[in-house]
């Protein structure tokens, strides 16, 4: 197998080095139950190491990804950026479909399948997204979510180089998604690997440029950006997973959802 992300190669070595140099977070004493409860809830035993990786990523982002994303926003018109975004999403359809099926969600799997068929043909290779207006809206699905729906706990918070905020479940899910992607295994030769790198590079710039207003705001306004991102990441994932879990067609009775809580 070709290594999918050359940039990730030095990561395990760097991880081991930082983990060896930095001690774990010290829990508060048992005499302070409120602090201890909060420490357990935060579930970030590797916080000192995570904060180092956050600082490294933040510095790299400042000199590499952020300027690229800003340049992309300035140089490429919005209409073109939307098409790139659509095409990248369409390329991810096989992974989405596999996860929808593993999550036992035939309706979402059907949406993904129809989206892929419609957008690859009518949408000219995925550059346009006619599927949404035809009643097949976009949704998120990945192996981290699949494992969550299978009952795998998220585990402690992790902040990894390049990948950013994650946890053991989502980080391993990311690896599985790469393995699930047929494009990881298709063909060989320079052209294919070049296209592969272009796709990942574009995805990084596409995602980062979409996040510019929000990330900039947090970095500008938060007193502790690391703690803020940790909280946002966890809440966002929880909401994504809940959405996948409860994604059913709207009930026929508009107030039926009110019944259980009102009892």
């Amino acid at each position: 197998m070709r290594l999918p992300r050359p940039a990730l190669l030095p990561v395990p070595a760097l991880l081991a080095l930082v983990l060896a140099l930095v001690a774990c977070a010290t829990p508060p004493p048992a005499s302070d139950p409120a602090a201890l409860a909060e420490f357990r809830q935060t579930n970030d035993p590797l916080e000192p190491a995570n904060r180092i990786f956050y600082a490294i990523n933040d510095a790299l982002d400042g000199v590499v990804l952020h300027p690229l994303a800003v340049g992309y926003l300035n140089a490429v018109p919005g209409a073109v950026r939307d098409k790139v975004h659509n095409a990248l999403g369409n390329l991810n359809s096989p992974v989405l479909l596999a996860n929808d099926m593993m999550q036992g969600s035939p309706r979402r799997a059907g949406d993904t399948f129809m989206r892929f068929v419609i957008n690859s043909t009518l949408g000219i290779g995925g550059f346009f997204d006619p599927a949404t207006s035809l009643g097949y809206p976009r949704h998120d699905s990945d192996f981290g979510m699949t494992m969550a729906l299978w009952g795998v706990p998220e585990g402690p918070f992790l902040y990894l180089p390049v990948l950013g905020p994650t946890d053991p479940r989502d980080a391993s899910g990311y690896g599985i998604d790469i393995a699930l992607d047929p494009f990881t295994w298709f063909g060989n030769g320079f052209l294919v690997s070049d296209l592969y790198i272009v796709r990942y590079g574009l995805t990084a710039v596409d995602v980062r440029s979409g996040l510019i207003p929000d990330l900039d705001k947090v970095k500008e306004q938060a007193l502790d950006p690391y703690a803020t991102f940790r909280s946002l990441y966890r809440q966002y994932r929880k909401a994504q997973i809940e959405k996948a879990r409860t994604d059913t067609p709207p009930p026929t009775q508009p107030w039926s959802a009110a019944a259980p809580a009102a009892q």
């Binding site: 909060e38 938060a222 007193l223 502790d224 690391y226 703690a227 803020t228 940790r230 909280s231 946002l232 809440q235 966002y236 929880k238 909401a239 994504q240 809940e242 959405k243």
Partner: peptide
């Protein structure tokens, strides 16, 4: 916003600052 609570996020921010 997208399932993230503003007050919970703000509390995490202040909590992280106060812890350090």
């Amino acid at each position: 916003a997208e399932g993230t609570s503003m007050r919970v996020t703000q509390r995490s921010d202040y909590g992280g600052f106060l812890d350090s």
